[in-house]
């Protein structure tokens, strides 16, 4: 990846190319910019000048949302769902992947095929039976009713990532630990997990985003407002304030700002996850 300076210069020689990149950048950033400033405007100002900076930075929209009581509850629910989903997904998929890579047992190869099924279709395909199952085990309208199916559907991809990482760990390390009287559960916990922090971060961040943004499963599962995750809450807001754009944009800003911040911090792991998965997928 070390390019000669000559190569660098050559790659940006064309002003047309730079112009094209800038046009795309404006296309990408414009809606985000409009949203971020829109929440500070009055509805009249939004109508006359949607793209300009606000004349005065009004905070009343934000105050109304934060003070509304509903918003913090939704964020709390989402946070709980996402954290529990990440914790369970990382734990269960790493355990299974470790056994599949480093232990010998009957049917090991079939198990890999079994989990690949999960890569084949989206949650939507199974949504009705999942709904019925949750009803039968009385997890409807409960956050756990969102968490468990989410973990189940995230397992296939997470196991794939963990398996390719574990396969790269030196086998002698596992054997040395076996000789050191460490059982397989001990090897998983004391040897393999401490060495897997990069892949744990990747799987964790990826799972977090998927869970944080997920809509269909909570939509089908959760029915009372006190259980809503933020995407459901936002939908409800949109219905309630369909013409009050400043308020809606303020709400968007409040949910986007942490997402963007998180993205900028965790970018490296997100990209590692999607390229790592893409190569194998």
């Amino acid at each position: 990846m070390s390019n000669t300076p000559m190569e660098e210069r050559r790659s940006f020689s064309s002003p047309g190319e730079i112009a094209g990149i800038l046009v795309v950048a404006v296309f990408v950033l414009l809606p985000i910019y409009v949203t971020l400033v829109g929440g500070f405007k009055t509805i009249g100002e939004l109508r006359t000048s949607p793209f300009g900076l606000p004349q005065s930075w009004t905070l009343s929209n934000f105050a109304a949302i934060i003070g509304g009581g509903q918003f913090p509850v939704m964020l709390g629910n989402s946070l709980f769902v996402s954290i529990a989903t990440v914790a369970l997904t990382v734990l269960l998929s790493s355990m299974a992947a470790f056994a599949m890579v480093h232990m010998k047992f009957f049917g090991r190869s079939h198990l890999a095929t079994f989990f690949t099924i999960g890569l084949l279709f989206p949650v939507a395909t199974a949504i009705l039976p999942v709904f019925l199952t949750l009803r039968d085990i009385q997890l409807l309208n409960s956050l756990w009713g969102v968490i468990l199916p989410q973990v189940a559907f995230g397992l296939a991809f997470a196991i794939l990532l963990f398996r390719s990482f574990f396969a790269e760990l030196p086998r002698e390390l596992i054997e040395a630990a076996l000789m050191d009287r460490c059982g397989y559960l001990g090897i998983y916990w004391f040897i393999v997990m401490p060495l897997s922090l990069p892949i744990i971060a990747t799987v964790g961040v990826f799972t977090f985003i998927t869970s944080w943004n997920s809509y269909l499963l909570p939509l089908v599962t959760l029915s009372s407002e006190s259980q809503y995750t933020w995407p459901l809450g936002m939908q409800q807001f949109q219905g309630a304030y369909s013409t009050d754009w400043p308020k809606l944009l303020a709400l968007l800003t409040l949910t986007l700002a942490p997402a963007i911040g998180f993205f900028l911090l965790a970018q490296r792991y997100i990209i590692a996850g999607l390229t790592g998965g893409a190569v194998k997928g």
Partner: peptide
């Protein structure tokens, strides 16, 4: 745990 959860909610 993985097999059971995956079986119940996916397969």
């Amino acid at each position: 745990p993985a097999v059971v959860l995956f079986g119940v909610f996916v397969v």
